Simulated assay, not measured.
Amino acid sequence: MKKVYNIGMEASLEVIGGKWKAVILCHLTTGAKRTGELKRLIPEISQKMLTKQLRELETSGIIDRKVYRQVPPKVEYNLNDYGKSLTAILNKLCLWGEHHIDYLESEGKNIVLLQRHGHK
Rank of each mutant, 00 (worst) to 15 (best):
R116S: 10
V112F: 09
W96G: 01
L41R: 03
M1H: 11
N6F: 08
S60D: 12
N91G: 10
I63L: 13
S60K: 02
V67S: 08
K66Y: 15
E44K: 02
D64T: 08
I16Y: 05
N80Y: 02
P72T: 02
T35G: 10
H100V: 02
I16D: 00
S46V: 08
R69N: 12
C94T: 13
I89G: 13
K52L: 01
P73S: 12
Q53M: 11
I24R: 08
M1W: 11
W20M: 03
L93F: 08
A22T: 06
I45M: 04
K74F: 07
Q115Y: 14
I45F: 02
S106E: 05
Q70T: 12
K66D: 15
A88Y: 14
N6E: 08
E98I: 04
S12Y: 14
L95V: 15
H99W: 12
E56W: 02
D102T: 02
A11P: 06
K3G: 06
E98C: 10
D102N: 11
L13Q: 04
R65G: 05
G83S: 06
L113I: 12
Y77M: 11
K33C: 00
E37I: 01
V4R: 13
T59W: 05
E10L: 10
L13S: 05
L86A: 11
G61Y: 03
N91R: 14
C26K: 15
H117G: 09
L104Y: 06
W96V: 07
S85A: 11
L54F: 03
H100K: 10
G83V: 01
E10N: 15
Q53T: 02
G61C: 07
D81C: 08
V112G: 06
L38V: 02
I63S: 09
K120P: 11
K92S: 15
V15G: 00
G18Y: 05
L114W: 13
E76D: 10
H117T: 15
K21T: 00
K92F: 13
L104W: 07
L79G: 00
R40I: 06
L13A: 01
G61L: 05
D64Q: 11
L50N: 00
E107H: 08
G83R: 05
L95M: 15
A11Y: 12
R40F: 07
R65D: 00
C94M: 10
A22E: 03
R69P: 09
G36L: 04
E98M: 06
M49F: 01
T87K: 14
L50M: 09
I7S: 11
K52V: 00
A11I: 04
R65Q: 06
L114R: 15
L41H: 00
L86P: 02
Q115M: 13
Y68E: 13
I42D: 00
P72N: 03
I16G: 03
A11M: 09
W20A: 01
P73C: 04
T29H: 05
A32Q: 13
W20Q: 02
E14I: 12
Q47Y: 05
Y5L: 12
E37K: 13
L95H: 15
D64M: 06
Y77N: 10
L113T: 10
T35I: 07
S46P: 01
N80K: 12
Q53I: 06
E107R: 09
K84W: 14
W20Y: 11
T30S: 14
E58F: 04
L104P: 00
I16T: 04
L79F: 07
E105F: 07
V23T: 07
L104R: 15
K33W: 00
Y68K: 07
G118K: 05
K48P: 05
R69G: 09
G36V: 04
G31L: 10
